[in-house]
Design a protein around this nucleic acid. Structure first.
Length: 884
RNA sequence: GGACGGUUAGCUCAGUUGGGAGAGCACCUGCCUUACAAGCAGGGGGUCGCAGGUUCGAGCCCUGCACCGUCCA
């Protein structure tokens, strides 16, 4: 036997392989869609990451899943387009750049709008480069020729088009309402950008004196500082207690404002005293009540959360400082009578974390109800976007059924500037596709554009079609829209998914995607959310650096169940790295035996061994299962199926069986084994490629196969010719036998080097299985002499075991341990007794026999036969051993 | 308060129309066997949260409860 030295190193080096293939793929244009118009398109648009900074492990999960889907579709013959891009992320990016400027001692206001935006663009370019580099390191098959940015010219045109059309349709309006104000970033927020947290606070009870001196009325509040803006007190119209007070006047303490007591059905008589103070400029409910009763609206804070001139003596104080002071003062004055512990929900800014202030302000809004109607109808009739897993559809539906208007203006500079102009002379508002130069109403040229920008999600909401060229009727839009699947986290179903669906239905008349695959969070090993403040985040680049991109991808995707959170554990990355190494070494073995072998030297036509037919059959089943799992987005199952097939079956059994012919002299057997090995490895690599693109390409390039790259190799198909259920049964017998012998050897503490003899008693077809695989059995359990026959006589002193259809004996003269053997057989007997009992009980049950499907009953009968037969043999052995 | 998810081996998690409980890691034993010690071979380990119900049969379906978590108000 000539020992061939492989030129591949013994351990897989991800850095080596991952360094070279990405450029090769890009140069080859394998990721560019649209080259073959006859193919069916399959499209995914990336959820655009924010250009605020680096990608985190959640991005890595999300991107890996998309890459697996798109790569498998590409191999399956689709014209696969995965369109990359990034989001300008208004608040987040602006905040980051402002923070940087602060370090330099400059504010954005000192810099001015134009200069500041230049800085942000610089920042964007910088981080876009970093993100692209991270995509490359992860091996993502993105079509960079179609990369987009939410503030591109094309996408900005789409934003303008949508704004103008919605405005003309009356679905966008400007008005003065209570909005959520973030005093830290000094901008309005939409409802969903506010996170409600339960906070231990206080309920302050105050007595407001009646003007006529006849007493007072008691009100309660959690925000006493807002009393400075009170313009009324409200009670429920049916509340007996206050019937006589309605219409009277109260003197607001501290500032001595005279305010009326009004009756409004919105007041909850059960809460507190049943009388509530009304602050129309600082509370959404009070705002509504205020409108109904024509109460003045008085803002008592400025946009930083500092008390303003309306706050009288408290002017200039921060809102929380003001609260402390006012509580003290009111207590001294005897107005504040009681402070109660009170847990209540307080809104915080999703971005800055600051306590959000309900704030009266003029903003732009989208009327959502009319936009949501079609989406609601679609979902109810089953025509809507399909959520995977389904349960998220309910969450989505509940939200769109209860949707409220969307505040879209932001007091920022970074973003799409609102395309509205105001006439300085007549006050006309102008919203048109082209920038106006004069007022269409009065002809004035004193026009000023709105200072504000749009909520970032306004532009992201157009992403699936704006990236493909909309509103222009482009070839890409026609070909790739609607897209096939969106992969995103459950945390942005409202923010993003729902809005994309609305706008798509409104402007393209179609769903933007057929399916939405929902991912969970990647948590830390303890199950905590990863966060900057905890410092428990995992940088995907660190993972790649330590274990390679393939290992990270495999770990993330096989640990994945749609919609569920998963924990990041380094041990799992290590396991994935070990798997890569396993494949690497199996391939080294294969390549050793395929040196100087060309594709035409291989053939699966020749006579095949049991192991050959078995592994081809199992490959068939693996192809089927992996394909099906991918089809239903069960990527975790697909990955695990491959793991088990490659490691347990290909490596542990097939390769071990294959060594015999490969190291032997039979040229024909060698050739067929090589062919099978090459075929199975080739096709395993193809199935695995979407998960582990780098290592599979690296190995595939060494195999005697046709094609430029595994990225565009054909996806394996199930082949009827490979079906060999009889080979599966044969292998089961062989494996069981080999395991039994190994088990005896291990129990007897036999050195692996020590060769023993093996006798097998079997008959009929089972006997032929042993006869046909004698050499393999000998090799795999360290057997010297093997005798398989119908009439094997039991040696005097032997270890014995019973397998399906056969009895095996290991004559171990001098080594035999009767007690151990007895114990083993007794154990075996116990197990079989239990099984037999279970089966018989089942079969004795008339209900089962009559009602269970026939094949289930038959299977059960067959099991019973096998167990009884086996038990018979075990009992026989026991009798013989005891009889000695 | 409403809705949803989770509870399966020591740990982290799979378990696809209900039909003999699985994986990885960890653990124990023996091996540097000519692809791989990032490995090989063998082994131990679970009242499937609790209580009922449906069914011939329940980890899986139904009801209730407990604990953990998420979303919404």
């Amino acid at each position: 036997m000539v020992e061939q030295q492989s030129n591949l190193p013994t351990a897989y080096d991800p850095k080596e392989a991952e360094g070279k293939w990405y450029d090769y793929w890009l140069k080859g244009g394998f990721f560019r869609a649209g080259d073959q118009p006859d193919k069916k398109p399959f499209t995914i648009v990336i959820p655009p990451p924010n250009v605020t900074g680096n990608l985190h492990i959640g991005h890595a999960l999300n991107m890996t899943l998309q890459d697996i889907l798109i790569r498998s579709k590409r191999m399956q013959g689709y014209d696969a387009l995965w369109l990359p891009g990034m989001d300008h992320a208004g608040i987040a990016t602006q905040a980051r750049v402002e923070a940087r400027l602060r370090e330099e001692g400059v504010s954005r206001h000192e810099l001015g709008r134009e200069k500041f935006l230049e800085k942000v663009w610089d920042w964007k370019e910088h981080y876009a480069g970093i993100i692209r580099d991270q995509w490359r390191k992860m091996g993502l098959s993105l079509d960079y020729s179609r990369e987009r940015f939410t503030m591109d010219e094309g996408l900005s045109r789409a934003v303008r088009e949508v704004f103008v059309r919605l405005y003309k349709k009356g679905l966008i309006y400007r008005g003065k309402y209570i909005i959520n104000w973030d005093p830290a970033t000094r901008t309005a927020l939409s409802d969903i950008e506010v996170i409600h947290k339960e906070v231990q606070g206080h309920l302050y009870h105050m007595n407001y004196p009646l003007k006529d001196g006849s007493g007072h009325i008691r009100v309660a509040t959690t925000r006493p500082e807002t009393m400075l803006g009170d313009t009324g007190v409200a009670v429920h119209p049916d509340d007996e207690r206050y019937r006589d007070l309605v219409g009277k006047t109260v003197i607001l303490p501290v500032i001595n404002r005279e305010i009326p007591i009004v009756a409004d059905p919105h007041v909850d008589p059960e809460f507190g005293s049943g009388a509530v103070k009304i602050t129309p400029a600082h509370d959404p409910n009070d705002f509504e009540i205020g409108l109904r009763h024509d109460l003045p609206q008085i803002l008592v804070m400025d946009e930083t959360g500092t008390m303003n001139e309306q706050a009288g003596p408290y002017q200039g104080l921060d809102r929380f400082e003001c609260r402390k002071r006012i509580v003290e003062d009111l207590r001294e004055a005897g107005v504040l009578t009681e402070i109660e512990e009170h847990v209540h929900s307080v809104g915080h800014s999703e971005r800055s974390g600051a306590v959000v202030e309900p704030y009266l302000s003029t903003q732009w809004f989208v009327r959502m109800k009319p936009l949501a109607e079609q989406a609601i109808r679609d979902t109810r009739s089953g025509e809507g976007v399909r959520f995977v897993p389904e349960r998220f559809e309910k969450i989505y539906l509940h939200w769109i059924e209860n949707i409220r208007d969307w505040c879209i203006s932001r007091q920022l500079w970074w973003g799409h500037r609102i395309p509205a102009w105001y006439c300085g002379d007549c006050g006309e508002t102008i919203v048109e596709m082209e920038d106006p130069t004069r007022c269409p109403k009065c002809g004035s040229e004193k026009l000023e554009q709105d200072e504000d920008v749009l909520d970032t999600w306004f532009s992201s909401g157009l992403w699936p079609f704006s990236t493909l060229g909309w509103p222009a009727d482009t070839e890409d839009l026609k070909r790739y829209y609607p897209t096939d699947v969106l992969v995103t986290g459950y945390d942005i179903i409202y923010f993003w998914v729902a809005r994309m669906i609305f706008t798509a239905l409104e402007f393209t008349g179609e769903k933007p995607f057929k399916d939405v695959l929902i991912t969970g969070l990647v948590r830390d090993a303890e199950g905590r959310k990863m966060s900057k403040s905890l410092g428990n985040g995992v940088d995907p680049m660190d993972v790649i650096e330590k274990y390679g991109a393939d290992a990270m991808r495999f770990m993330l995707s096989t640990g994945y169940t749609p919609g569920n959170d998963q924990r990041f554990r380094w041990e799992r990355v290590e396991a994935a790295r070990n798997f890569a190494n396993k494949i690497w070494n199996a391939s080294r073995f294969a390549l050793m035996h395929l040196q100087n072998v060309k594709a035409e030297d291989l053939s699966l036509k020749g006579p095949l061994s049991t192991a050959d037919r078995w592994i081809l059959h199992r490959l068939n089943e693996t192809v089927e299962r992996v394909s099906e799992s991918l089809e239903r987005y069960d990527l975790g199952d697909a990955g695990q199926t491959l793991y088990r097939f490659i490691w347990d079956e290909l490596c542990d059994w097939y390769i071990e069986f294959a060594k015999l012919p490969l190291y032997g002299d039979d040229e024909s057997a060698k050739r067929s084994t090589r062919s099978v090995l090459s075929h199975v490895l080739d096709h395993s690599l193809r199935l695995l490629h979407p998960f582990m693109p780098f290592i599979t390409e690296e190995i595939w390039q060494h195999l005697p196969v046709e094609g430029d790259s595994i990225t565009v190799a054909d996806w394996p198909r199930k082949r009827p010719g490979f079906e060999a259920p009889e080979a599966v049964r044969e292998m089961e017998i062989l494996i069981e036998t080999i395991r039994s012998v190994r088990n005896i050897r291990a129990e007897m503490d036999l050195s692996p080097k020590k060769q023993v003899d093996l006798l097998i008693r079997a008959e009929g077809e089972t006997l032929s299985v042993f006869r046909n695989n004698e050499a393999a059995i000998r090799r795999l359990c360290g057997v010297g002499r093997l005798q398989a026959d119908r009439a094997v006589s039991r040696p005097q002193r032997a270890m014995t075991a019973v397998v399906t259809g056969a009895e095996i004996f290991l004559p171990l003269e001098g080594l035999i341990d009767i007690d151990q053997t007895l114990a083993r057989l007794e154990g075996e007997k116990k197990k079989l007794d239990k099984e037999v009992e279970r089966v018989e009980k089942k079969l004795a049950n008339e209900g089962f026999v009559n009602k269970a499907p026939a094949h289930v009953v038959e299977e059960e009968r067959e099991k019973g036969r096998e167990y009884r037969e086996k038990r018979e043999k075990v009992l026989q052995r026991l009798k013989e051993l005891k009889g000695e």
